[in-house]
Design a protein around this nucleic acid. Structure first.
Lengths: 225, 225
DNA sequence: GCTGGTTTATGAAAGGCTTCATAATTCTGC
DNA sequence: GCAGAATTATGAAGCCTTTCATAAACCAGC
């Protein structure tokens, strides 16, 4: 039944129907409503979660509850692989932002598959490289850019995730909550509100109720100031 | 000749002498004096560098030359693996901070070894997991802590890297330059200077010419303030 | 052991961002 | 369609950090 679904996940695309079958039998399907905590930072656990349906955010909190979003993942993506490979506790908390469904795969199943089929390892290495790049970029943004720059980077990244283009502009649909943009930029809701209205006044973006339209030129933000 | 050296690198510890020999023959040894740029962000190139001797820093710069240090690596560590696995350009610049010597291994050699010996893939996955954790922690520090907290975290991390313990205190030897602590904390030299002298006045650390001694209690810094 | 260059310490001013507060707007569920 | 909840907009005060400037300390090499 989900064989077809798995087949479309790049990570498993090289597996034979038999191997997929085997993987499925050893795995468990789990559902979580929107807003559930799937795993907690500090937990031990070596299972990997493949997102079949829905969307999650990977987050960290400080002692006052201030949140930083490390990444957002949707169906076809997976998380929890780090603990599967280095046996350390969960390094972040994962929360569903939509009703979601996961395939929970044990570390054992994964390493078994790697041994049979090293190609899977290369897929994993490639994906982890991508994540490391993104993490490095986020570090760079936090350390080297001011809030305007960071928010601009987040808008561009959000656009790449939605990919709605009309003529010369780029739309982020649906419009994300300011507090989420803030949690991605490492700043406060209020500051994001101010920064976006400044961008809007400068003609770099257009804010509507349903979306944010990015005009060419936002990339250059740093210079214009 | 370097077979013995390679044997001690965790990444290759499972390889047979024959496989090590093969790897060595396909690889090239390269030396760089202190202060050399080994690879530039944006370059294309899929080779992996194994550090045989010396020390490097992985850095990013903003347009004014302000630097953020993503990590510091020493002999036995490797870098450049990301481009080897996802074929994207170099995501950061690597600079030697000591005279250094590298074994330059082609992506091809690595994937060949992975196919022969999936265990190598697991080592790589484990190491990349570790790096991702560190990156996430750095993001969290930058986004959620003030400068004091970030500098404190860097001191603790530096201590873990030197591991000189005498009685109840922990020493960072040799004492790093303030500008490097700054580049790791995402702040300025001047601010690090002020923060350290504040820590010193509060009795959390002791600053000497040769080292920094961390007393128990620095971890709690956030609370004390 | 001196000289020039580098690193560190510290003050002062300015600015960016946070925080708190309030009002307006929008959304949600009945 | 309404009431209450959540989100957004905006002002004001204050703090943290940066930046610039200067002096002191330190270091490296001849």
């Amino acid at each position: 039944m989900e064989i077809k679904l798995l087949k479309n996940v790049p990570l498993f695309s090289e597996l034979s129907p038999g191997e997929l079958e085997e993987l499925l039998e050893l795995s468990e399907k789990r559902r979580y409503p929107k807003g559930s905590i799937v795993l907690y930072k500090g937990d031990v656990g070596q299972v990997l979660y493949l997102i079949l349906k829905g969307k999650v955010k990977v987050v960290l909190f400080d002692e006052n509850g201030k949140e930083i979003i490390l990444s957002t993942l949707k169906s076809g993506n997976y998380f929890g692989e780090m603990s599967a490979f280095d046996q350390m506790p969960r390094s972040a908390t994962v929360v569903t932002v939509e009703d979601s469904e996961f395939l929970v795969i044990s570390q054992r199943s994964i390493t078994d598959q790697i041994n049979k089929n090293p190609h899977i390892a290369l897929k994993l290495l490639s994906e982890m490289s991508r994540r490391l790049r993104e993490a490095d970029e986020q570090i760079s943004n936090l350390a080297l850019l001011d809030v305007r720059g960071r928010v601009a980077q987040i808008l561009l990244k959000l656009y790449k995730g939605t990919n709605v283009r009309k003529g010369e502009d780029y739309r982020i649909v649906p419009r994300p909550a300011l507090k989420d943009i803030a949690a991605m930029s490492g700043t406060s809701r209020e500051t994001v509100s101010r920064v976006l209205s400044e961008f809007s006044k400068r003609g770099l973006i257009s804010l509507t109720k349903e979306n944010i339209i990015i005009f060419e030129g936002l990339e250059l933000d740093e210079d214009i100031d």
